[in-house]
Simulated scan of single mutants.
Amino acid sequence: MEETRYSVSLPGLELKNPFMPSSGAFIYGLDHLQDFDLNEMGALVLKTTTVEARRGNPKPWVIGTDSGIMNSVGLANPGMASVANEVLPELATALPDLPVMISVAGETVLEYQTLAKVFDRIDYIKALELNLSCPNVDKGGMEFGVDPETAAEVVAAVREVTDKPLYAKLSPNVTDIKPIAKAVADAGADGLVLINTVVGMSLDLATRQPRLYRGTGGMSGAAIHPIAVRMIWEAASVVDIPIIGVGGVDSIDAALELMLAGASAVQIGTKTAEDKQFIPKLIAALPAALDKYGFDTVRDVTGAVAKFPLPVTTWEATH
Rank of each mutant, 00 (worst) to 15 (best):
T4R: 07
V8N: 12
S9L: 14
L10F: 09
P11V: 11
E14N: 15
F19T: 14
M20C: 12
S22W: 02
S23V: 09
F26I: 11
Y28A: 06
D31K: 13
Q34M: 14
F36E: 15
F36S: 15
E40L: 15
L46W: 10
L46Q: 12
T48L: 05
T50C: 13
E52P: 02
A53L: 01
A53K: 13
R55I: 11
V62Q: 03
D66P: 01
S72T: 02
S72C: 06
V73A: 01
L75Y: 00
A81F: 08
S82H: 14
A84V: 08
V87G: 08
P89T: 06
E90V: 04
E90T: 09
A92H: 08
A94C: 10
D97M: 06
V100F: 07
V104L: 09
A105L: 04
G106H: 10
T108R: 13
T108G: 11
T108V: 12
V109K: 15
V109H: 14
E111W: 07
Y124V: 03
I125N: 05
I125T: 08
A127F: 12
A127R: 10
N131W: 06
P135M: 04
P135A: 03
K139M: 13
G140V: 11
E143L: 10
F144I: 06
V146D: 08
E149V: 15
E149A: 15
A151M: 13
E153F: 07
A157R: 03
A157H: 02
T162M: 13
T162I: 13
D163S: 09
K164F: 08
K164L: 09
Y167P: 01
K169G: 02
L170N: 10
P172L: 09
T175H: 11
I177A: 08
K178N: 02
A181N: 02
A181S: 14
V184I: 05
A187D: 03
D190P: 01
G191S: 08
L194D: 03
L194I: 14
I195H: 03
N196V: 07
V199K: 15
T207E: 06
R208D: 04
Q209N: 07
R211T: 11
G215K: 08
G217W: 02
G218S: 05
M219L: 15
M219V: 14
M219Y: 05
M219I: 15
S220G: 12
H225I: 03
A228C: 01
V229T: 02
I232N: 07
E234I: 01
A236S: 08
I244E: 06
I244S: 06
S251H: 07
L256C: 09
L256M: 12
E257L: 01
M259N: 04
L260T: 02
K271S: 10
T272D: 11
L282N: 14
L282T: 12
I283H: 13
A285V: 12
A285N: 14
P287Y: 10
A289G: 09
K292M: 11
T297W: 10
V298Y: 05
R299Q: 08
V301T: 01
G303N: 04
V305P: 00
A306T: 00
F308V: 00
T313F: 00
E316D: 07
